[in-house]
């Protein structure tokens, strides 16, 4: 599945990534009476006042906009947890902390649409901004380590939006390196010998951009 906005780069726009993130489940506390919703993606509800139930984010936002529910802030979005994550991100320059795959998008949707349901919203928002900045800086310093011997890059715990931002640059950079390092371009001194060696090496050198 590729994004529709720019077929040449085969990337998603930020809005498209947000659209994908809207399928994540969140917990809501409805204040209306409604039977179970039978949708293609599953059955949600029944909705009874003050009985918590979990629905996709898009449904939660739609209900919230009509004032029919309050959204329960996800566990990971508590200020304590975010502070911990931020500290851990700063302490470990070699790895990313586990966060929900769509944390950037979910947090933005919640901050935009459900600001009264999130305790310490401004604090949480600035923490998430900081976490994102720290993570991105880490990734950027990791980019410098790409070289011609990079065949595979392992990125654990990187989130959807972060991957989406670096994808066009990253793919092209790897392509360029692959092109310039191709055996047609690099001639070794003893062709017969080294060609056998490079074959062996080809599946060898994998560089963990961020070891985990």
């Amino acid at each position: 599945m590729a994004g529709q906005s720019d077929p040449s780069l085969s990337m998603f726009s930020a809005a498209e990534v947000e659209f994908l993130a809207e399928d994540e489940m969140v917990e809501i506390v409805p204040n209306l009476n409604m039977d179970t919703l039978n949708l293609i993606c599953g059955d949600f509800g029944p909705f009874r006042p003050q009985m918590a139930t979990s629905v996709p984010l898009w449904l939660a936002v739609a209900l919230k906009k009509r004032g029919k529910c309050t959204i329960r802030s996800p566990q990971w979005m508590s200020v304590e947890n975010l502070t911990q994550v931020l500290e851990a991100e700063r302490d470990s320059p070699a790895q990313f902390q586990p966060l929900p795959f769509h944390y950037v998008e979910i947090s933005r949707l919640l901050f935009d649409n459900a600001r009264d349901d999130i305790p310490d919203m401004y604090m949480a928002r600035s923490l998430i901004e900081d976490i994102r900045d720290v993570r991105f800086h880490k990734f950027e310093t990791g980019l410098e380590k790409i070289s011609s011997s990079t065949h595979v890059v392992k990125l654990k715990n990187l989130s959807a939006m972060e991957v989406n931002i670096v994808r066009p640059f990253f793919v092209r950079a790897l392509q360029a390196f692959a092109k310039h390092d191709s055996p047609q371009m690099i001639h070794h001194q003893q062709d017969a010998m080294s060609s056998r060696q490079t074959h062996v090496q080809d599946d060898g050198p994998r560089r963990d951009l961020r070891r985990r």
Binding site: S147, S148, A176, F177, H180, D181, Q184, M185, I186, H187
Partner: peptide, 10 residues
């Protein structure tokens, strides 16, 4: 030239 290009690009 090949290795020169690679060196320059890297």
């Amino acid at each position: 030239i090949g290795s020169f290009l690679l060196y320059a690009f890297m």
